[in-house]
């Protein structure tokens, strides 16, 4: 059996290059096989199913081909506009506030002070706690009749009745965003903290010597160094929020009256509540395409950073 060897760059054609790299392909084959099975096939099947009508009274084997009807149903439905708007509000504001809070916490934790380790540990708690457990806890904190938050505000004299957050169509989404930000800002904090530790002290000292104040040092030295980390963090948070299911589903189930329904909860409801796998698949494909666009920018941001470093 010949030993695998490190392939040299070749000027041969595509087939030749594949032959040159045959051992490399062999090594990644098992991983590729698993990925095909658990990622590629479900994606293919979701695309396939999105062209079929699957009412609850029919077995899947009796599904009926209906072309692009499911896409038309999704895009033309009364709820699509509201759910899409909710998704945008949920994703953009969750990402924005988690980033701002994470940045602030990271700047604080980047300084040396007594108890820094303890504070860092405490701030990480929301991130490591189970999202399901956190959702139930917050549901009770917010509870419209017996919630802790309402009771505290009432005792302080700040409200004179019940605090209705989860059962109020205007307040429910902002309330859930608060929970989501609380849950994920430590992720942004850790990412940015790692980035802050790469900012060269010499540059900061030089800026200080040149008379730059704290804000100018941050704006002109620190922030440019964080640019790559911030872009990656924003993209990761954005994707995570777009796909975030647990908090809205457990806390409100998308209600009341659809006021906290976002794409992902809507897809779940259509698939498993209404047993319309065809329509849910069409919805998923639309979400998938949005994710592909975001993924493109994510990869571009990553490789762009590598390219900059290479030059």
């Amino acid at each position: 059996m010949s030993r695998p060897h490190r392939s040299e760059p070749s000027s041969r054609g595509l087939i030749g290059q594949i032959i040159d790299h045959r051992w490399d392909y062999l090594y990644v084959l098992p991983a590729l096989g698993v990925m095909m099975l658990v990622i590629a096939y479900p994606i293919y099947y979701t695309f396939y199913l999105s062209f079929f009508r699957t009412p609850p009274s029919l077995a899947m084997s009796e599904k009926i081909f209906n072309g692009f009807d499911n896409y038309a149903t999704v895009l033309g439905s009364d709820s699509f506009q509201q759910v899409t708007w909710n998704t945008i509000v949920w994703t953009v504001w969750s990402t924005f506030f988690a980033l701002i809070l994470g940045l602030g916490a990271a700047l604080v934790l980047n300084r040396e002070f007594m108890g820094r380790g303890l504070l860092r540990g405490l701030l990480l708690i929301p991130f490591v706690i189970s999202a399901v457990a956190a959702s139930y806890i917050w549901r009770w904190i917010y509870h419209s009749d017996f919630g802790v938050l309402g009771a505290v505000l009432f005792d302080l004299g700040l409200i004179d009745g019940k605090l209705n957050l989860l059962d109020n169509i205007d307040m429910v989404l902002p309330s859930l965003i608060v929970v989501n930000v609380w849950k994920e800002f430590p992720f942004a904090m850790i990412m940015i903290l790692a980035g802050l530790q790469t900012v060269p002290d010499q540059l900061l000292n030089a800026a200080r010597v040149d008379g730059a104040g704290a804000f100018h040092r941050f704006w002109h030295v620190t922030l440019p160094h964080l640019k790559g980390v911030l872009i990656i963090t924003v993209l990761l948070l954005f994707v995570q929020n777009l796909n975030h299911f647990i908090i809205p589903w457990i806390m409100t189930g998308g209600g009341p009256a659809g006021a906290s329904d976002i794409w992902i909860t809507q897809i779940y409801q259509i698939a498993f509540g209404r047993i319309r796998f065809g329509i849910a698949s069409a919805y998923s494909v639309i979400l998938f395409l949005v994710m592909v666009v975001i993924g493109y920018f994510y990869v571009k941001a990553l490789t762009g950073d590598e390219d900059r470093q290479a030059h």
Binding site: R139, H143, S144, D145, F146, K162, N164, L166, D167, M251, T252, G253, G255, P256
Partner: peptide
């Protein structure tokens, strides 16, 4: 209960 839109009967047992 104001929480009727998110409650089930289980949550009514306590009150």
């Amino acid at each position: 209960p104001v929480s009727a839109l998110t409650n089930t009967q289980t949550e009514n047992q306590d009150p």
